[in-house]
Simulated assay, not measured.
Amino acid sequence: MAYDRIPESTPIRRLYAADEVKDFIAAVLGKPRLYRSDDPLDAVMIAVFREGDELGWHFDRSEFSVTVMYLDAEEGGHFDYYPGLRSDDDSNYAGVQQVLDGDSAGVIRLPSSPGTLAIFHGRHAMHRVTPTSGSTPRINSVLTYGEDSGMRLNELTADLFYGRTQ
Rank of each mutant, 00 (worst) to 15 (best):
R36T: 08
D80Y: 13
V66F: 08
R61Q: 15
I46R: 15
D23N: 12
V96P: 04
L29W: 02
G163D: 05
S113I: 00
T136S: 12
M69V: 14
E51A: 08
W57Q: 06
P40M: 09
F79I: 02
R152F: 00
Y35G: 01
D42S: 05
L156Y: 13
R14L: 13
D80I: 09
Y35W: 13
P7N: 05
V44T: 02
L55S: 10
V99F: 01
A27H: 10
F64A: 02
Y70K: 09
R61I: 12
E20D: 14
A26P: 05
D60N: 05
L85K: 01
D39E: 03
M1D: 13
F161P: 03
D90K: 00
E63V: 04
T165Q: 14
D39C: 04
Y16W: 04
P131K: 01
E8L: 11
N140A: 09
K22D: 00
S135K: 13
G102N: 08
I108G: 09
D88N: 12
Q97Y: 02
R33C: 03
I12R: 07
A27Q: 13
Y35F: 15
R152V: 13
A18V: 02
A125P: 04
S113P: 00
P131N: 05
A118P: 00
S62G: 11
Y16P: 07
T136G: 06
F64H: 06
S9T: 12
V44M: 01
V28D: 00
T144W: 09
H121S: 09
Y35P: 03
G150Y: 04
I46M: 15
D101E: 11
L34M: 05
E75V: 08
R128N: 14
D89I: 07
V99T: 03
L85N: 04
V96G: 03
S149K: 09
L71I: 07
G163M: 04
R164N: 08
H121Y: 15
L71V: 12
Y70S: 03
A27P: 06
L110M: 14
P114Q: 07
G115C: 06
H121N: 13
G56C: 12
N154T: 02
I6C: 01
D39T: 01
P131C: 06
S9P: 00
L15N: 03
M126D: 06
V68R: 07
N154M: 07
P40Y: 10
L160H: 15
A118L: 15
G95M: 06
D42C: 02
S149L: 07
D148G: 04
D72V: 07
D60E: 10
D80F: 09
L160F: 15
Q97P: 00
Y145L: 14
P83K: 00
G115L: 01
F49P: 05
V21F: 15
G106T: 01
L160Y: 15
